Simulated scan of single mutants.
Amino acid sequence: MVSASVELLRIDGLRNIEHTEVDIRGPCSLFVGANGSGKTSVLEAVYLLARGKSFRGRRSGDLTSLGKEVTRVVGDIREGGEDAVWQLAYLRKRTVRARYVKGVMVGDGAEFARWFVVRLIGEGSGRLFEGEPAVRRCFLDLNLFHVEQRGSEVLRAFKRVLEQRNAWLRSGARGRPLWDHEFVRLGVDLDQARKGLFSDLREAFLVLAEGFPFLKGITLTFRSGWPDGVHLADAVAADSGGEQISGHTRVGPHRADFSLRNRDGELPMSRGQTKIVVCLLQLAFERVQMSRLGYGSVWLLDDLWADLDSRSWGILCSLFRSTGGQCIYTRVGDTDGLEVLGLPSDTRLFHVERGTVVDLS
């Protein structure tokens, strides 16, 4: 199994990093430094290249460095198992953002977006279970995009039809329900694609969960967005009165969700346990991706050790290494005590202070 990897990274005008060039070729890199030093911004730079958007919210402030007009990130990305190195670039000027491959502007559906996959685990990862169902649907559908092209095409078509149907409902639902046939057809196709992916996810997740006693007896459950045992067409027909009053479609795959449960219902979890579950879900999806497509991901692991006991992060570090994907870690603090973190001996070490990155390897 092979994965893409980041070799050289050049960052200009990204938060408190005014300019830096970092060579991170190799299986594992660790960036250490104080809070607010710029460690997470290095991960953000890789994420911008792969996804074209940031994973950080407004609370983190403006993406572009104070006093700068442009944020620019350039990365040399080696395609897994190939000699080819792709130069990717992300550019943001005020509210306009774009990505480039070898100097040519590309969209979100560009070819490299399927094989240059990044998986992030960071401060906000707990929202996967603490947040609204839309967060979990987005997580599921992002993985659907990477492992099943037809499924992602159906998702885009379904969203267009859902918008049209909701517009019809908001206008008073006058005339014949022209969008119902396509809504049901695409909804059923999307549900089947999600269920197929989720079935593989569940199998991989339950194997990984065996290493953590608090997950004994748990189940991972998917809900389609309408009652079990009922066809989507019948569910839509049964709710026609309610949706005309509310002005939006109330049943369908846009209401899908999944949950982690034990014999007593929803599984209560601490922050550390939530982080473990998020890690295992990402690792489970990685196994599905590798089994279906034959390549893995680049891991962006932001202060993985926070909230975890030594046994747990030892197991997780071993699992991340076993994927064969490039791992880019950050850790709050200095270089003391790194030998107990469970990282390989050839890990590249960097110190970050006030936006300046120093290679200590």
Rank of each mutant, 00 (worst) to 15 (best):
P27M: 00
A204G: 03
S152G: 09
S5V: 00
G342M: 13
E203T: 15
A284Y: 03
L91D: 14
H181I: 13
L267S: 01
L360D: 11
T330C: 03
R99Q: 12
I77F: 02
G172I: 05
A235S: 07
G314K: 13
G355C: 06
F112H: 06
Y100A: 01
L360T: 12
L267Y: 02
E266K: 11
G109Y: 13
R170D: 01
V230F: 00
G52L: 06
I77N: 05
D228E: 15
S240V: 14
P227Y: 10
F139Y: 15
G107A: 09
V288C: 05
E18W: 08
G124R: 13
T71V: 14
L30M: 01
D12P: 02
A306D: 08
R250W: 00
L43D: 03
R136W: 10
T347D: 03
M1E: 02
S41Q: 09
L88F: 12
G294S: 06
K39L: 04
S152T: 10
D307F: 13
G265T: 06
A233P: 05
G247H: 08
G337S: 10
K53V: 08
S240E: 09
D257N: 13
G36V: 06
P227D: 10
V2P: 00
E243L: 14
L142I: 10
S361Y: 03
D239H: 13
S291A: 15
S224F: 03
G296A: 04
R176V: 12
L63S: 14
D228Y: 08
L169M: 09
V85L: 11
D62Y: 15
E353C: 07
S246L: 13
R97A: 14
V352W: 04
K68H: 10
A256M: 08
A45C: 15
T323H: 00
K39E: 02
A45S: 15
L267W: 03
G217Q: 15
G187R: 00
L304C: 09
L293M: 07
R261N: 08
C317I: 06
S318V: 08
S224T: 11
Q87W: 08
R72P: 09
A4W: 03
R331F: 02
S3Q: 03
L142H: 08
D359K: 03
S322N: 08
H231N: 15
L144N: 04
V277E: 06
N16Y: 11
V236Y: 03
G26E: 01
L308E: 05
V106E: 12
A89T: 14
E210H: 11
V188A: 10
S5F: 00
W299L: 05
H351F: 07
F350P: 01
S310M: 11
G80W: 01
G38T: 12
